[in-house]
Amino acid sequence: MILYIMCFFLFLVGVYGAITKRDLIKIILAIGIMGYSVNLFLVLLAYRTGALVPILKKGLNIPASMMVDPIPQALVLTSIVIELGITALMAALAIRIYQKYGTFDITKIRRLQG
C-alpha cells in the first residue's frame, strides 16, 4: 500500500511543479514526472508477489497463474509513446516561444490576458 501512496505522492509532486514553476522547461519536466508516476502505478498494479515474466520461452515453463499481468505493461508502453509525443511537441513550442519572446519565464510571456 505504501508504494501506491508514494506513487500518488510523486503524482502530486508533478502537479505541484506544473502549477508553481515559472520556467517553461520546468513545466515540461513536471508534466513528465506526472506521467512517470502514473506509469509506475500501472506497473505496480501488474506486480504479483513471486510471479515471473509473462513470456513463453523454450525450457522455461511458467504457468499462466504465475505470470505478472502483461496488460499494464502494454499500457505503459503506449502511454510512454504518447508522453514522448507530448514532450517533443511542448519542447518545440517552448523553443518557438523562446525565439519570439527571448525568455522561458512565463511571467514575461503574457501577451494573452486571462
Binding site: 514522448l84 517533443a88 519542447a91 518545440a92 523553443i95 518557438r96 523562446y98 525565439q99
Partner: peptide, 11 residues
Amino acid sequence: VFYYLASFKPK
C-alpha cells in the same frame, strides 16, 4: 523529432 528539435536556432 530529434532532427527538427536540433535544427531550431535560438533566434
